[in-house]
């Protein structure tokens, strides 16, 4: 059976900076974990329409308050203090997969 694809959405102010960096680092994290996933990056303005289709939302702690109210209540969210810290991103991703996506 084909592995399930994890759909991850990285959200930042305008989809040009931190969300693109998160996408680059996360793609490396997923490869290391052997997880099949797609990472999209977007702006807060466009995130609303895309969030229902994502399995996981990722954003920075600095920015989380700005989008908290727009995130569907049941949607798993990862917030990163330091978006350049691959170890932090990897650890949080691994914990989330173990907890919510054990079929991946």
């Amino acid at each position: 059976m084909r592995k399930k694809c994890l759909k991850i959405l990285a959200v930042c102010g305008n989809g040009l900076g931190s969300s693109l960096i998160v996408k680059m680092i996360l793609e490396s994290v997923l490869a290391d974990l052997g997880v099949y996933g797609i990472v999209d990056s977007t702006s807060v303005a466009q995130a609303g329409g895309m969030m229902p289709f994502a399995d996981v939302i990722i954003t920075s702690t600095a920015f989380y308050k700005g989008i908290e109210s727009a995130i569907p209540a049941d949607k798993p969210v990862i917030t990163c203090k330091n978006i350049l810290d691959k170890e932090e991103l990897g650890r949080k991703m691994q914990e989330l997969i173990k907890e919510k996506f054990s079929d991946i």
Partner: peptide, 13 residues
């Protein structure tokens, strides 16, 4: 934008 949605420009310590 920062005043509207928060300090999104701070990415790491």
């Amino acid at each position: 934008m920062i005043k509207e949605i928060g300090p999104y420009v701070v990415i790491a310590p």
